[in-house]
Design a protein around this nucleic acid. Structure first.
Lengths: 137, 137
DNA sequence: CTGTATCCCGATAGATACTG
DNA sequence: CAGTATCTATCGGGATACAG
């Protein structure tokens, strides 16, 4: 690396200043995870399953307040696809399907709990900051 | 609490089975936090600021790959409103504005780092599960 | 009971142009 | 330099109806 002829322009045009070196992947893994669980219902479904153990479709529908059949189905499919929960269908005359967290899903629950803890701890700060911001302008 | 006349119907119609008792707030605080940082750019901006310290608008624009001026502005406003970063404008002839994380924003960074750690640790599991799911159907 | 199939609307985000 | 203003495309998500 000869530094003799690299500084011809004074500054070296910074081709890659440093991008975001905050997280291992430059934040990509964080964003992927947020895309996975950052939607409206995933964390709620995970929370219910974590609290109640295996549940069937209708039980989930009752315990997640406000979710539609469509969104529950979609959310369950996504979580199943990512290996966060398992789906077990029993061939019975009234069909019965049970959903439960996989170990992977349960490990995620721990992370989200930490997030909830942060939210609880700083809820007042955020409310205050928001109020101050809105009243300034 | 006399249990003598409560069981007239056999089952008590379960007015509130148990809802979601997974998290303190029933998941509300989690969802609020995810609404705050679950968008496309917030965590990236926080990450860049956490890694580089105070930065001005154009520096952020350069270091967050792919973000538009509009989205950067909106993201910064939201984060400022929630007290996660502070905005300092200097009255100079070429205007200069510097953004930096508040202690609150930095504390959030720690949480998101944990999330990133989880994502990194289980990335292979998720990829495998996803691949298996897609190839089954 | 456990979904799937449509239709539709509002919110989010990208592109572009313009301003103090 | 640091934004704002529009316009538009896309998408998540709700309501409803229907099917295995």
């Amino acid at each position: 690396m000869s530094a003799t002829h690299t500084a011809v322009t004074g500054r070296q045009s910074q081709p890659l200043p440093d991008l975001c070196a905050a997280w291992p992947d430059g934040g990509r893994t964080v964003r992927e995870t947020l895309d996975r669980i950052g939607d409206k219902w995933s964390v709620l479904v995970i929370g219910v399953l974590a609290a109640s153990g295996p549940l069937r479709f209708i039980a989930l529908h009752q315990r997640v307040p406000g979710i539609s059949q469509r969104m529950l189905t979609l959310t369950l499919r996504h979580l199943e696809r990512d290996g966060l929960l398992s789906r077990t269908a029993y061939a019975e005359v009234p069909p019965r399907v049970e959903y439960q967290l996989t170990p992977l899903g349960d490990s995620l629950r721990a992370v989200v709990t930490a997030l909830a803890q942060w939210a609880t701890d700083h809820d007042d700060e955020i409310k205050t900051a928001r109020h101050a911001f809105d009243n300034r302008r």
